[in-house]
Write a protein that binds this DNA or RNA. Structure first.
Lengths: 145, 145
DNA sequence: CCTAAAAGGATACATAATGTCTTTTTAGGG
DNA sequence: CCCTAAAAAGACATTATGTATCCTTTTAGG
């Protein structure tokens, strides 16, 4: 359960690679794909999605390629993951409570809500800069224990 | 991402129903399925799995049926979820770090580990008794904020 | 032995994941 | 103005997973 897909894994690899480059450097898709070991055609699809929502910027034609859409310290891992996997929804009822109007067993609802919040919390706390720097910030929840 | 399957949803419904019955009461599969609105044949498969690992006990033949395998306060939601969905693994690399020996992008590894711990933490904090009682205990993480 | 009930196995269908291929558009450079 | 490089877009193929259903077998009570 809760498993990131290949697509998600590839997306993170690719965009973290971009985050490690200068903001104005245009990178060839084929170079990125080779560097992070992802099928180029697949990565193309992912970056097309990212381009539409501004996570990356793309340039066509000769000398074209991709660069990060914004400064890496302003892009959270949550944003990347949700862009490629859709929203973090442990159970349908979290977003559609009307499906949950059964009596007893929908006591579970608040639990899924908690799970969702925890996960989003962790992923929000990490930026692409953190990841490309190799400096992962400890989460508050770690300090707690 | 992270979505519980129907099977998982059905499993929880079914076993929470059992948790609400007296420990020695044998319930007909068909009754359970009808009560929690789950396809009986599907629930049968789920409870067969549960029976093998002792989460529920089954009785065959006339007067047969299912009951909870242990006291509901000793069964956590995590146990139920993992029994039916498999282990909580946000990314393969969490359980197989050898796949993660790439340089930069596996900085993400500790993040997935954190996610895993957070989710398991929440699900461990809830028992079937809590769920069948309708009394969901607030998590430590809630108090923190 | 007859019937009720779960166990086990095989099967069917739909959807999502994981790619690939081809064609089209865009842009730079001679 | 063409030629070439590169991404965009769309169609397609393959597999795996999810979501069941059905049928036969085993077990147990009466």
């Amino acid at each position: 359960m809760m498993e990131l897909t290949r697509k998600g894994e590839y997306a993170i690899r690719g965009i973290v690679y971009l985050a490690g480059k200068p903001l104005d450097k245009v990178c060839l898709l084929s170079d990125i794909a080779a560097a992070v070991d992802v099928p180029p055609t697949f990565l193309a699809k992912i970056f097309q999605q990212f381009s539409k929502i501004g996570l990356v910027r793309s340039f066509r034609g000769t000398g074209g390629g991709f660069m990060l859409g914004r400064a890496p310290e302003n892009i959270t891992l949550l944003e990347v993951v949700e862009a490629v996997e859709g929203p973090i929804i442990p159970n349908r009822c979290v977003c559609a409570p009307q499906d949950c109007d059964r009596s007893s067993f929908c006591n579970v609802h608040p639990i899924w809500k908690q799970v969702q919040e925890q996960v989003c919390g962790v992923l929000t706390g990490v930026t692409l800069k953190d990841l490309s720097d190799g400096k992962i910030k400890p989460q508050p929840t770690d300090l707690a224990k």
